[in-house]
């Protein structure tokens, strides 16, 4: 609901030119004159578009930023936020290059997933795919670059918590009646793929090889495919500890994957991507590694 409202507000800004008239947005984005939480530049006033937004002055005073969290709180998992960039002298900043980086200061690390920033117009930027991979103290580093001028601010979130629902989504337990077949059609029925571990039973913590056979829907071997492999543990949200390599054997639709390794017991999903003659398709195999 709030997201819709944001889009509406953005459209309004686009049409009306800017932020000076937000006082007409009765009730929803009442004018707020507030001190920012910037570093010692307390006398700069920011006109807030949203009651519940967080505001920060960038380090060199160039911009003031408003951060809106549609779901009220950031949580462990995937988040979306909205950022409104104002000039510190007033007026909104359009067509800026905004980058957002989640960071865990106590651990000195971020996340692999990159937030995706989309400009909505009128100084409003929506930021999707803000992934906070664990609970604890997080920061969002927001960098704004425009016309050779770059400045940044850090929003601090001392305690990010897990939400039950998100937890379940990111870390799904194996469904009942999992299909452990080692021969399957790809999603769009273009290729038939089968695999077998060359050393027999797949054992945990061993680097080993797989033999793949790829055929087309008529059962003819596909010898010219480009094949990539991705391993994933849906319950834990992480992948293989190695980077496997695929070798095309050149005959019989045979391919060899070297460097497979599973370092945790349980449900693994190994996805084989096949690209041949300009056609791309993929198949996922379930494994129960003990």
């Amino acid at each position: 609901m709030k997201r819709l409202l944001l889009v509406f507000v953005a459209l309004f800004f686009l049409l009306s030119g800017c932020a000076a008239r937000e006082d007409q947005m009765a009730g929803h984005s009442a004018e707020m004159e507030g001190m920012t939480e910037g570093h010692g530049h307390g006398d700069v006033k920011v006109t807030k578009h949203f009651d519940e937004s967080l505001t920060k002055l960038t380090d060199n005073n160039l911009y003031s930023l408003e951060l809106v969290i549609p779901d009220e709180h950031l949580k462990m998992g995937v988040n979306t936020v909205e950022i409104i960039v104002h000039h510190s002298t007033g007026g909104d900043v359009a067509q800026a290059d905004v980058t957002v980086t989640p960071w865990m200061p106590s651990m000195g690390h971020g996340v692999m997933e990159k937030p995706v920033v989309m400009e909505r117009g009128g100084g409003l930027y929506s930021v999707e795919n803000v992934v906070l991979s664990m609970t604890g103290h997080w920061q969002l580093q927001v960098k704004v670059a425009k016309d050779d001028k770059t400045d940044e601010a850090v929003f601090d979130f001392p305690e990010i918590k897990a939400m039950g629902h998100e937890h379940a989504m990111m870390h799904a337990p194996p469904p009942k009646d999992l299909d452990y077949a080692t021969e399957k059609m790809t999603v769009n029925d273009i290729f038939k793929v089968s695999y077998k571990s060359t050393g027999g039973l797949i054992r945990i913590n061993r680097i080993h090889s797989w033999e793949l056979t790829i055929r087309d829907a008529d059962g003819q071997p596909v010898n010219n495919a480009k094949v990539t492999v991705v391993g994933d543990m849906p319950e834990h949200g992480h992948g293989l500890p190695t980077q496997p390599e695929v070798f095309n054997m050149g005959v019989g639709g045979f391919y060899r994957i070297d460097g497979m390794k599973f370092q945790m017991p349980g449900w693994w999903v190994v996805t084989i991507n096949v690209m041949a003659d300009g056609v791309h398709d993929a198949v996922s195999f379930n494994l129960d590694v003990l």
């Binding site: 651990m107 000195g108 690390h109 971020g110 996340v111 692999m112 680097i207 992480h238 293989l240 500890p241 190695t242 980077q243 496997p244 390599e245 070297d258 460097g259 390794k261």
Partner: peptide, 14 residues
């Protein structure tokens, strides 16, 4: 181990 080493620094920070 060296041939198939996972080289992602982000994955292994800390």
């Amino acid at each position: 181990q060296l041939r198939f080493i996972e080289t992602s620094e982000e994955k292994y920070t800390g």
